[in-house]
Design a protein around this nucleic acid. Sequence first.
DNA 1: AATGGGATCAACCGCCTAACA
DNA 2: CTGTTAGGCGGTTGATCCCAT
Length: 262
Amino acid sequence: MRCKASEKPYPKHKKGLWSPDEDQKLKDYVMNYGHSCWSSVPINAGLQRNGKSCRLRWINYLRPGLKRGQFSLQEDETISSLHRLLGNKWSQIAQHLPGRTDNEIKNYWNSHLKKRIEKLQHLQTNPKTDYISTNMRSTEPSSSCINASSFINSLSADMNQLVPPASQITTLPKILFADWISLDELRKDIGKSRDQPFSHESSYEVSHMHDYHEVSTQESKDSQNCLISGSNNGDMFQSHMTIDEIFSFNDGDFNLDDFIYM
DNA sequence: AATGGGATCAACCGCCTAACA
DNA sequence: CTGTTAGGCGGTTGATCCCAT
């Protein structure tokens, strides 16, 4: 884990937003040399940042395979379900959302989903409240083709039927493979209840999950048990890219090793 | 047009853990 | 065993955006 800093660190690390030039330097360096030692990356890349800052920037914004833009409905549901199970374990939740970072999910939860679910719970305790007309924002994610009431119904099913309430979870040492399957079952159930088929984006996500199922069934039970308990499985998810994404990354200039490395 | 307040999100902070000397 | 350090993670902050007034 530890590594030897090759040179003296910069006496004063720059803070604040990253400039395009800094982004380019970091991206170029990591793509060429990797990041086996983050503390040496800013020194070698000619950046006046600390290693942590570089790591964060790479993971959250520069790493290939990241999705940008609004969360799909399926992502909403996955986050909601996993948050119900795991709480604020953002890194673990992010492992199940290809192309999304823990920071992004955390922000999205705090700014969108948390409020939405609080309103839903309020609706459940105060059924007379007209949730749709008074509380639903007019700017739902563009990828959500279903209407608001359908979404609420699916979310209610998610929270109240398919996932045990948090009060019933006394201990949660490990999430077994069966739990992960149940999420897929949940997704199927929700999908059935909708008028619209999955979007292209969602099928991308689900197909990766399917890939993971196949991989998991070939692994030992131990590795399955590590699914949510802090293994490196997330790297596998987060490195998934479509062919178009791969070939458009870095203006088409890349090495296969770069992707294997990441 | 000005402005105040809420929403959003990139980035930092501080803590924890693991690895190493 | 102990101290030090890097990496990782969740919580929080602050700059910016957006919108209503």
